[in-house]
Amino acid sequence: MTRLPVKKTYKLFVGGEFPRSESGRTYEAEGQNVARASRKDVRDAVKAARAAQPKWAGATAYNRGQVLYRLAEMVEARAGEFAELSTGREEVERAIDRGSSNPVAGPYFNFTVPEPTGVVAVLAPEEPPLLGLVSRLIPPVVGGNSVVAVASETRPLAAIELAEAVATSDVPGGVINILTGYRRELGPVLASHMDVNALDLAGADGDSPELERLAAENVKRVVHGRADVQSPWEIASFLELKTVWHPIGQ
């Protein structure tokens, strides 16, 4: 007698929890019923991301690196494809390198430090579903941002698996939020959301121009990420540079 498998419910990942869509809607993808996030789910996810961001940004780079390495361990246990995560600590340190002390002509000490932009919205590429998401999700998180990502619409299951790994890692709730649903529906809500600071349009395809127009309303930093790019410089797109001056005197 064959055992009847326990069927999994694929839900959203918001604020460290796995809620259903507040709308109660689902859609079928990869033979499963997957939560179909609504405008209000976007709202909740951005709220969770905003709440989590300052503490995550305030963690030391060393700590963030360790947390992400731990995430890589969690993922490693699940699948080989997840190994892409393992560069956390080095990337953090490379990002910090973007700071500088600047030799101004005058009695001032002047230095520049990178800081996270804030809340980053990511439209993950359709393909490859997991690597594409991870490539676009990790750089902003490494830099101290929190992220609201919309998973591949046609192949969302790997994203939920990733969310489960994130939930069991030490990444604080709200730093990474993953929504499943229709990109056409969720993209404009994220692009026009006034509390989102940056937008990665990796998976936006032909919708880019309209989303970019919406993004201008609060001067979002718009990035056209690529699924296949793995470079520490990707982090820089989600960093602000702050320059501090102080006089040098007795």
Binding site: V104, A105, Y108, N110, K242, T243, W245, H246
Partner: peptide, 19 residues
């Protein structure tokens, strides 16, 4: 803020990033 002036204000220099 992109520029923080501590105990000074409105200083500019070509070597100092602004934005």
């Amino acid at each position: 803020a992109g520029v923080v002036w501590a105990n000074t204000f409105n200083r500019f220099d070509p070597t100092s990033p602004f934005g």
